[in-house]
């Protein structure tokens, strides 16, 4: 890329956000609004609130639970999905039940699991797992089901079975579909992390933010919203990066197909 083009791309990227921040700054400049802090206040509150001991006591434990829950959900979802997807009668047997579980809004699981397990860390992790597993599981089933029969027959003919079949045929074929499930799973996971802490907890990000709101610590509350937003953005970046790496062959294939 030529320098002029880079500059142009940069202008496009930062232009609108800069204008929005300017409007925000100008709007909060004159009258003191109780509900909306100025950009400066928000920035300094953000640093004060989250870069102290809170990062150890609230942010990191929350993130830890999120990571454990999401990873467990992805692994369980893929393993169960591979199993259910490759066995026909098992798929027919479980399909209606799974449809139902997928349709249950995950947050209602919080009170149920609270009852079954008490308010513990493992309960929060289980909440995340039990909400995140469905998109991964159902997408894996669908992906495994939709394997190209020619490829499947060919690999049978060549005597590729067992682990090799899963590794070289099933996983790559279902890969794009599985990743679509993983992406949904990530955003549900973040939502459930926050809700499980808002509903029943004495620590964690969700709890802290609600606490700020209840005590009318408005700039702190906004800074909490900002940090949740940043976590969301970071997760989506990490996902896009990993997805590009794992599915590099697939994106390449699509580009070739689209170019024709």
């Amino acid at each position: 890329m030529k320098p002029a083009n880079i500059l142009k791309a940069l202008l496009y990227a930062v232009g609108l956000p800069a204008v929005l921040v300017l409007i925000w700054w100008a709007a909060t400049l004159g009258a003191k609004n109780f509900f909306v802090p100025t950009p400066g206040t928000l920035l300094s509150t953000f640093a004060e609130t989250w870069f102290g001991e809170r990062i150890v006591s609230d942010v990191l434990p929350s993130l830890g639970r999120l990571v454990v829950g999401v990873v467990a959900a992805i692994v369980l979802g893929i393993v169960a999905g591979l199993l259910i997807g490759s066995v026909k009668w098992l798929r027919a047997l479980t399909e209606p039940v799974l449809e139902f579980f997928r349709a249950v809004p995950p947050p209602v699981l919080v009170p149920v699991l609270m009852l079954l397990m008490g308010i513990t860390d493992s309960m929060k992790v289980v909440v995340i797992i039990s909400g995140c597993i469905w998109p991964v599981l159902l997408n894996t089933i669908e992906g495994v089901r939709a394997i190209d029969p020619v490829l499947s027959d060919s690999s049978h003919t060549y005597g590729i079975t067992g682990a090799a079949r899963v590794r070289y045929l099933v996983l790559p074929s279902a890969g794009p579909q599985i990743m679509a499930g993983v992406r949904q799973c990530l955003s549900i996971g973040l939502i459930l992390m926050v809700i499980s802490e808002m509903f029943a907890s004495s620590s964690g990000l969700g709890f802290t933010i609600v606490q700020f709101q209840r005590s009318f610590a408005i700039p702190e509350m906004w800074s909490g919203i900002v940090i949740l937003g940043l976590i969301g953005v970071a997760m989506s970046f990490i996902f896009q990066f990993t997805e590009r790496r794992i599915l590099r062959w697939y994106h390449g294939l699509r580009e070739v197909e689209n170019a024709v």
Binding site: A13, L16, P17, L20, V194, G224, L228, G229, M235, S236
Partner: peptide, 16 residues
């Protein structure tokens, strides 16, 4: 850039 930034913000962050 604005859309890509706003979209991943979890809606529950807006609860308070």
């Amino acid at each position: 850039s604005t859309v890509e930034f706003l979209r991943p913000i979890p809606s529950v962050a807006l609860i308070p």
